[in-house]
Amino acid sequence: MREIALKAAIALVICLTMAFIALPIASLFLKNSPDAVLRSMNDPAVKDALRLSLTTSTLTTLIVILMGTPVAYVNARFSYFGKEMVDSLIDLPVIMPPAVAGIALLMAFGRMGIVGQHLNALGFSIAFTTLAVIFAQVFVSSPFYIRQARTSFEDVDLSFENAARTLGASRIYAFFHVTLPMAMNGLISGAIMAFARSLGEFGATIMFAGNFQGRTQTMPLAIYTTMQGDLDVALCLALILVAISFLIIALVKNLTRRMYKNVRN
């Protein structure tokens, strides 16, 4: 009897938790008519935000992969002075409130910032441009990729690289032909997570890049702006983001499953 009661209580907790998460998402669909969504798709604010978000998030992901892969590999394979500090620094943007990230970027690259003032003297400005959107996205999303990439590289046993070396491969050849393909599922999974984080970035972007339609107004910023006027447009943008989120979760789950299967083998 007590066992049945316990099972019922656990089932109730699970149902309540699921309802708490599912209800707001379901409401987005329930409070929205397909006609209104389709109409809103043609709204310039939606088109601009979608184009800007996809462009900047894609560029951000590429930058994060190019910058993060060597860092992740070195941290996975080598010990060096200050490695702990580098690790902590990489993780910092995950914990840091986005608004703090935004103001930190302004202090560094803003017109009066430490680096920004010199760039400004050369006639080059970063803050409140599309480049600032990418800077903000790289800052907040890079830890998601680097952490995942490091774990993936660590999962590739060193004996595979050693075998490649004894067979005549240089370090670089061994990396590109052995380590990288073996870590690939994890790297793709990390890149998808970084892309997702870039797509949802709000706080650092609004502080460092501003909120200018077509230039710095990404989808989350467009939702914030349009919901004060046309709720249909905001809901349309929200639905697009939810759809992308579902797709990302499905992709990451699939890749993670394949990654662990490879590791087990």
Binding site: A163, R165, G168
Partner: peptide, 20 residues
């Protein structure tokens, strides 16, 4: 001399065959 230039045939304990 770097491992790749030593011309050594090495059979590792776990074989280290490239799984991909």
């Amino acid at each position: 001399i770097a491992p790749e230039r030593r011309r050594i045939g090495y059979v590792f304990q776990s074989y280290a065959l490239f799984p991909h």
